[in-house]
Amino acid sequence: MEKKLSEFTVGDEGTVKSVSGEGRIRRRLFDMGITPDAKIVMRKLAPLGDPMEVTVRGYELTLRKTEADCVIMTVAD
């Protein structure tokens, strides 16, 4: 099943299917290891509901929901 990363709730996990977005943001996501087939676990939301914290490639990354919108994930049904 496909789902945007921004729609994940705490504890959800899946693999990256594709990354869209404007050049700079897309590049930054790539550079931080969010690339096709990378496994991502959603860890938590900041107290005010945004940004979110995820585990990717063995480290903790924070990004906003608007940026997570660019990441299309595949999740197990």
Binding site: R28, M32, E53, Y59, E60, T62, L63
Partner: peptide, 9 residues
Amino acid sequence: PPFIMELPA
């Protein structure tokens, strides 16, 4: 500006 940042241990 975007906010994509590593959270160090």
